[in-house]
Every structure is written in structure tokens, then in C-alpha cells.
């Protein structure tokens, strides 16, 4: 495997290309994704206004999500470029922020990698930047609370795996539904078409979802050892004195606040 095979224009991914959805469907999915993205942009604007330094961290997070999604991961059929970023991003940055970062990532993927189209940007944003992150975050919180009694390492690994696995499956289910609505089966209707698409995609997506889960666990394990402070601030790790789980996007603010604190003491 050469560098260009690890990182480049890659084969299967779950981005609906340009022109595959009829214009009305594309517009409807854009309208469905819009409230989430607008909400995310509002909270981002508020945060940036309160703390201009947040912008740089959000830019870094956006770039991180893009580069992760451009990575090709080892899979059953050789390699596949895939949004490893969705599950991890949702856990690290929370779904409202991910609605914005995910949409930005999708825009750059369409412009720089030709993954996904511009007319289908709304449809892809709905599956990858809205449903994926919320499903991932839901699974993460659920497994985290279910395993609250087990050791921190096991609980974290299990919940991160659940987040990445379910984000991948959630995304592919929504994409199948979008394609089924656009191209219903003459006999079986939308349900029939959904079964057809879901079956085809599940051949590649279920193994990929498992591998994606494993990789995401590996990423978070490394982060717990090298970047523990960041994870505690982002609310992923339980600190010894647990802050309320509602710290949400204050994460980035906390980071910059601490940096300034550091600067003033030096």
C-alpha cells in the first residue's frame, strides 16, 4: 500500500453523487437538513462572538474531520475511503457543532475530492451531518450509562465502538431511504426499493462499520494516553471531579480560556 493508496480519491463511500436525486427530492432533503445546520451556525456564531479564539479551534476541528474522511481504511474489499469522522466527530464535538462541521466537510469533499455532489449536498448533509452524528451520540451516551459500573477503559471503548458502528449504519440506512424514495420499485414501492438498496449496501457497509468502530476505538485509546486533558475538557472522559454533562460546546471555550489563563500566569 503506497501513500497515494492510503490517501486519495477513493472507491465506495456513502455520498450521493450529483444528479442521482431528482431536483424536488434534492430540495426537500436540503430543507430537512437546514434547521439543524442553521441551529448549529447560530450556536457557532454566538460562541465565536463571545470568544473569537474559538474560530481557530473550530477550523482545526473542521480540517480534522475532512482529513479523517479522506483516509482510506482497510476493509474487506481492500481499502475504502469512508467517513470515519462522523462517529468520532459526534463524540468529540457534539451533534450541533457536527451539523456545521459535517456540512463544511461535505462541501469541501464535493469541491476537492468530487465525493458527493453540490445539488445533493443537502441530502448528504442530512445523512452524514445530522442523522449520523445524532445516532452516534445517542449510542455513545446510552452505552456509556449502561456501562457506568464497569472500568473506565472498557466503558469508553464499548461506547466509542457503538457510536462509530451505529453512525455508519445510520448513515447508510438514511442513504438507502433517500435513494428508495427517489427511485421506488414498480412492484414493491418505496419499501421494496429500500430493501434492494439496503441489501446491496449492507454487503460492504456492515464489515466497514465494524472496522470503522475498531479504528475509532484505537483513535480514542491513543487520545486518552496522549491528550487526556483535551478529552476531559470535551466531556468524553470522566474526570475525577465530574462536571455536569451539559458542558456541550463550552469545550472549545474552556480550551481557549485555559490557554489565556496559562498566558497570563507566564
Amino acid at each position: 500500500m503506497t501513500v497515494h493508496e492510503v490517501l486519495e480519491i477513493g472507491p465506495p463511500h456513502m455520498h450521493i453523487p450529483e444528479g442521482l436525486l431528482p431536483p424536488l427530492h434534492a430540495a426537500a432533503w436540503t430543507a430537512a437538513a437546514a434547521p439543524f445546520v442553521v441551529h448549529g451556525v447560530r450556536s457557532l456564531t454566538r460562541e465565536v462572538r463571545a470568544n473569537p479564539d474559538t474560530k481557530l479551534l473550530l477550523g482545526a476541528a473542521g480540517a480534522f474531520c475532512f482529513v479523517l474522511s479522506a483516509l482510506k481504511i482497510p476493509s474487506a474489499t481492500g481499502t475504502s475511503s469512508h467517513p470515519v469522522g462522523v462517529g468520532l466527530g459526534a463524540v468529540l464535538f457534539r451533534p450541533p457543532v457536527m451539523a456545521v462541521l459535517g456540512t463544511i466537510t461535505l462541501l469541501f469533499q464535493a469541491l476537492l475530492l468530487a465525493h458527493g455532489g453540490l445539488s445533493t449536498l443537502g441530502a448528504n448533509a442530512f445523512s452524514l451531518a445530522v442523522v449520523g452524528p445524532w445516532v452516534a451520540y445517542g449510542a455513545f451516551r446510552l452505552v456509556r450509562s449502561l456501562t457506568a459500573r464497569s472500568s473506565e477503559g472498557l466503558s469508553l471503548s464499548a461506547s466509542v465502538f457503538a457510536a462509530a458502528f451505529s453512525a455508519s449504519l445510520g448513515t447508510y440506512t438514511v442513504t438507502s431511504l433517500q435513494l428508495a424514495l427517489a427511485h421506488p420499485d414498480p412492484e414493491g414501492g418505496i419499501v421494496g426499493a429500500f430493501v434492494k438498496y439496503a441489501t446491496i449496501f449492507s454487503l460492504t457497509q456492515i464489515p466497514i462499520a465494524v472496522i470503522e468502530g475498531l479504528i475509532t476505538v484505537a483513535v480514542v485509546r491513543i487520545l486518552t494516553s496522549v491528550s487526556r486533558g483535551d478529552l476531559v475538557r470535551l466531556g468524553v472522559l470522566r474526570p475525577s471531579a465530574a462536571p455536569p454533562s451539559g458542558t456541550r460546546t463550552a469545550t472549545t471555550t474552556a480550551t481557549t480560556a485555559e490557554d489565556r489563563e496559562k498566558g497570563s500566569t507566564e
Binding site: 479523517l68 483516509l71 482497510p74 472496522i211 484505537a218 483513535v219 491513543i222 496522549v226 491528550s227
Partner: peptide
């Protein structure tokens, strides 16, 4: 899988 995980980790820290 291990290398891809390490790559993701290092990218987060560096970004």
C-alpha cells in the same frame, strides 16, 4: 486498523 487509529489520534493532537 492499529495504524489507522494511530494516524487519526496524531491528526487530532496535531490539528
Amino acid at each position: 486498523v492499529r495504524s489507522a487509529g494511530a494516524l487519526g489520534g496524531v491528526l487530532f493532537v496535531r490539528s
